[in-house]
Design a protein around this nucleic acid. Structure first.
Length: 915
RNA sequence: GCGAGCGUGGCGGAAUUGGCAGACGCGCAAGAUUUAGGAUCUUGUAUCCUACGGAUAUGGAGGUUCGACUCCUCUCGCUCGCACCA
């Protein structure tokens, strides 16, 4: 059983007891206990106000210097304020920022507020307080907390996503999406006006399927006169033209299945639906198609995937994004419906198993289901569809351990062998992936196998595994084999390997116009609208005649109106829908319309904030390209791994649009990414209010100071690791800082200690200094902050013992420690006789020669076991080392008179004698 | 189920990437100082044994090597992602 140390007891009392008496007596105790320690409180306040007044950390676009952009993931200003996890990443980035400044870089190190979000809106629903007021209050508190940690942010570049001067430009970027299309032939986004011009000039025609066909395309040229299978722009009606253009936009409206809760009158996110009912209230939730805004991220899938190669990110994050994008190649194959003029298109990654397709499955939502279902089966099909609609996406995946489905009564014809196979519907096929329909090959797909077993459908083997035991099982239909093998039961394709078969069958399908090579992505277009009040309104008006217009850039920002109630409208629309003054608009030309009442999701503001920092106060544009070009890409981005996919993918996506349109000059925004790990409570559990193990940064700063807080956050362990908090650990680094202080400042006189003199340092001291400079520098470069601190502890332990301390050594040490503990170092720097801040002092240089020991202790092993240690000079030759090692009595004894077969000498490490 | 990562003293963690395992800090113990407590300083602190010596130790079992925390194979445990994507 571990004794609870005093510091821990105090912390527990402070957090758990609001009793005035105990609280104040503890405060008194603290003041007394800390009396003879350095006055971190005064020092920290002093330097924070100097930095603020002097704008010490103002970022300057100085072309004569190399630049360095260190970015933190900006926080959501919550009512709870900071938790100890925030300062971890912020301290790491601050150390790097301060270090780079001293290394001569022009540094951009900004902070801001990701301030739209549900909590402020929910608080508004409860209390009627405007979310803007709540948000402002929370920002003020969090800013106070962040400032109290002494981070070297350029506060003049602060951004707040809820500030109209900021979201004006978020809306502006939305208009860029809305007014752009994606040119597949060049794999990039372009202004939609250009497309219209090209169509009007008849450089492009409109294909039958609404696709875009270049006039000089093959096939068109061959035919003289009017193009066949394509229409000129002028041949389309105004409505057709509008529809065509709308279909090309990168921001578009679509009917999308959402989680609709009739009882609550609102749409819910997947996380808000548990077991088919709403998390709040337990009301039924159904899948219902609703009009939503979408962003066409899928057009960028290929580039989002390919460009991951160029960023220096943790491989795990790259892999998450790769999987999320989920690119797979295969074939699309058309199956004719028996006796009807319809066909079903399926996507498969295994076209080589076509001969083994024994049935087909459509997603319940597939448009063909109603058309092909026979009268006998219609009833069953309808009720199954209804059942499926009631399940949320989560249920359909999570709870579907047992497969369900219904036969439609219809049959399809397998294009490779003309066999008729039954068509089923089942919710294991997702409407949102591929074509929403599959060919089922139960012998070679686990899911199809489970389904076929349950409904006693045919299983035909078409791939032969090498392993004979497996082969027997698969042949008997007792096992599903989904790996590659050799083709069987596949007509003239028998004997081919899976890879060969895929190539040949795809070619065959294309030759016979029954299919083609196809690529599919798991990534889906981004559902970009929310039915909320506290978000950026869409700058869009829906006119009575069905036309939809976007506001002009000059009309931005579009500011949401004040509302009486923040509750949802009850119609699936946002609270904005109830404000008729705001919603109903009349255009200058007299036409009437309604404003879009959806708002953008919280992700929107965070998609481009790093760009705004480069030119935060620009009123004419989101940012000047010259500034962007100077600062971007972000050299170091530090934040939590929870944003591995969504935020980091969404902002890359926005960045690529801006890149295509020429607003930014680099294809990727974030060069290097580092994830800080999670900090657990003192009990090793996740911090949570209910467990009562939450550590409040304010409390730590009050008791130990910001420098100790920063130092401890870094000393805990590797930045990326998950690790538990320990108040005793804070005490440890606090002691270290006190030791540094006492080594330099005489406690009695409060003046520079008399042991500090302008003298030459002895060789040991020089060596340790240079080792420290070397280690701290390289550790900052590799984010090994914990080992950097441990080296500085070794330094101070050495220096504290010296009777006379060379001033220059002390000064260099103060500079090296300063990125970690800036306040105390500024103070010491001043007291060492310097004017002004040390923030731009030159970083000390180490001399590699001076880091080396003159005498080296070597371990001497016999057969790998250490028998003795010898001391040799650093210049000793291999022969001299061997001679000395073999002369050792202990070694001679261990060798038992045998002669060495081999002697291995690792310079400055060890000697191993093999006998 | 799939994928990734991690297992080192009482605790957080080091280990120049195959070369003296346990740096540094916490905790603990003894001592100094002190009226006392706190603070500070000094020393010790992986485990075991027949103890100024020796043996065993990096979740476990094998392997490669003169030499393995580090590389390989198997295995156990924990954590975090993803989860019918055809």
């Amino acid at each position: 059983m571990q004794k609870i140390p005093a510091a821990q007891t105090r912390a527990v009392v402070l957090t758990q007891c609001n009793c005035f008496f105990i609280d104040s007596s503890i405060k008194g105790f603290f003041e007394m206990a800390k009396e003879d320690r350095y006055k971190f409180n005064e020092i920290e306040k002093k330097w924070q106000s100097i930095w603020e007044q002097d704008k010490t950390f103002k970022a300057v676009e100085d072309k004569s210097k190399p630049k360095y952009y260190v970015l933190d993931m900006f926080p959501y200003p919550s009512a709870q304020g900071l938790h100890v996890g925030h300062p971890e990443g912020y301290t790491a980035s601050d150390i790097v920022a301060r270090y780079k400044r001293m290394r001569g870089f022009s540094v951009l190190h900004p902070i801001g507020w990701d301030a739209f979000g549900l909590p402020a809106e929910q608080y508004a629903i409860k209390t009627g307080t405007h979310p803007a007021d709540t948000t402002q209050k929370n920002i003020d508190n969090m800013r106070r907390q962040i400032k109290s940690l002494g981070f070297s942010y350029d506060w003049d570049r602060q951004v707040d996503t809820t500030d109209p001067n900021y979201y004006k430009w978020t809306q502006w970027i939305f208009l860029k999406f809305y007014n752009s299309w994606f040119d597949d032939s060049e794999n990039k986004a372009k202004p939609i006006l250009q497309l219209i011009e090209d169509l009007e000039a008849e450089k492009l025609y409109v294909g039958i399927d609404g696709d875009i066909i270049p006039t000089d395309a093959e096939g068109l040229q061959a035919i003289s006169g009017d193009p066949v299978g394509a229409r000129k722009w002028s041949e389309l009606s105004k409505e057709q033209q509008r529809e065509f253009i709308d279909d090309q936009r990168l921001a578009y409206e679509a009917e999308v299945a959402v989680n609709w809760c009739p009882e609550l009158g609102t749409v819910l996110a997947n996380e808000e639906v548990i077991g088919g009912v709403s998390e709040r209230g337990g009301y039924p939730v159904v899948r219902r198609p609703m009009r939503q805004w979408m962003l066409r991220i899928t057009k960028f899938a290929d580039r989002l995937l390919a460009d991951l190669e160029f960023v220096d990110w943790p491989t795990s994050i790259k892999k998450l994004q790769t999987d999320w994008i989920g690119r797979s190649t295969g074939a699309e194959v058309d199956f004719q419906i028996a006796g009807q003029d319809e066909f079903v298109r399926v996507f498969t990654t295994r076209p080589d198993t076509l001969f083994g397709a024994t049935y087909m499955v459509l997603a319940p939502e597939h448009p063909l289901v109603d058309i092909i279902a026979t009268d006998e089966q219609r009833q069953a099909v309808e009720s199954y569809k209804e059942q499926a609609a009631r399940k949320s996406d989560l249920d359909r995946t999570d709870l579907a351990k047992d497969k369900s489905g219904v036969f439609t009564g219809a049959y399809a014809i397998n294009p490779v062998n003309e066999k008729q196979i039954p068509i089923w519907i089942s919710d294991y096929v997702l409407i949102s992936y591929g074509t929403g329909a599959i060919m089922a090959v139960p012998a070679h797909d686990e899911r199809d196998y489970a389904f076929a077993k349950k409904f006693s459908l045919d299983i035909i083997q078409v791939v032969k595994p090498e392993d004979e035991y497996l082969q027997a099982k698969v042949e008997a239909g007792e096992l599903c084999f989904s790996d590659d093998g050799i083709a069987v039961n596949s007509g003239r394709f028998d004997g081919l390997t899976t890879a060969q078969f895929k190539d040949e069958i795809t070619a065959w399908l294309e030759d016979n116009t029954k299919g083609k090579l196809a690529v599919n992505y798991k990534l889906r277009d981004w559902l970009f609208s929310r039915q909320r009040y506290w978000g950026e309104p869409f700058p869009i008006i829906h006119l009575e005649d069905g036309e939809r217009i976007a506001l002009d850039e000059s009309e931005l920002p579009l500011i949401p109106p004040h509302v009486a109630s923040y509750k949802a409208a009850g119609t699936g629309e946002s609270p904005l829908a109830n404000i008729s003054d705001w919603v109903n608009v009349t255009l200058p030309d007299g036409r009437k319309g309604k404003r879009e009442t959806n708002t953008m999701p919280q992700w929107a503001g965070s998609c481009w904030y790093y760009l705004r920092y480069t030119d935060a106060k620009n009123n004419d544009k989101p940012f000047d390209k010259a500034n962007e070009d100077y600062w971007l890409p972000v050299d170091l981005y530090i934040g939590g791994a929870e944003h591995a996919v969504l935020h980091l993918l969404y902002s890359r996506f926005w960045h690529k649009l801006l890149y295509d349109l020429g607003y930014v000059s680099h294809p990727e925004p974030f060069k290097k990414l580092v994830n800080q790990g999670m900090i657990l409570g003192q009990d090793g559990q996740k911090m949570s209010k209910s467990r009562g193990n939450v550590v409040n940064p304010d409390e730590v700063i009050n008791n130990y100071g910001a420098d100790s807080m920063r130092l401890y956050e870094m000393f805990m362990g590797p930045l990326e690791a998950t690790k538990p908090w320990s108040m005793q650990g804070v005490e440890g680094v606090y002691r270290f800082l006190n030791k540094v202080w006492r080594t330099i400042i005489d406690e009695e006189t409060d003046q520079l200690d008399s042991s500090i003199k302008d003298v030459e340092a002895d060789s040991d001291t020089v060596r340790i200094l240079h080792q420290t400079i070397k280690k701290v520098s390289s550790d900052i470069d590799t984010f090994g902050f914990n080992t950097a601190i441990s080296q500085m502890m070794i330094f101070i332990n050495h220096i504290a013992k010296l009777e006379v301390k060379p001033k220059s050594v002390i000064e260099q040490f103060v500079l090296v420690l300063s990125p970690f503990a800036p306040h105390v170092c500024e103070e010491l720097w001043q007291r060492l006789g310097h004017y002004g801040s040390l923030a731009y002092e030159e970083w000390p240089q180490h001399d590699d020669e001076l880091t080396k020991e003159t005498d080296i202790e070597l371990a001497v092993q016999v057969l790998g076991k250490i028998k003795d240690k010898i001391v040799v000079s650093a210049e000793a030759t291999e022969e001299q080392i061997i001679e000395k090692a073999l002369a050792s009595e202990k070694v001679i004894a261990a060798m038992e008179g045998k002669t060495p077969k081999k002697v291995i000498v690792i310079k400055s490490r060890l000697v191993n004698i093999v006998i």
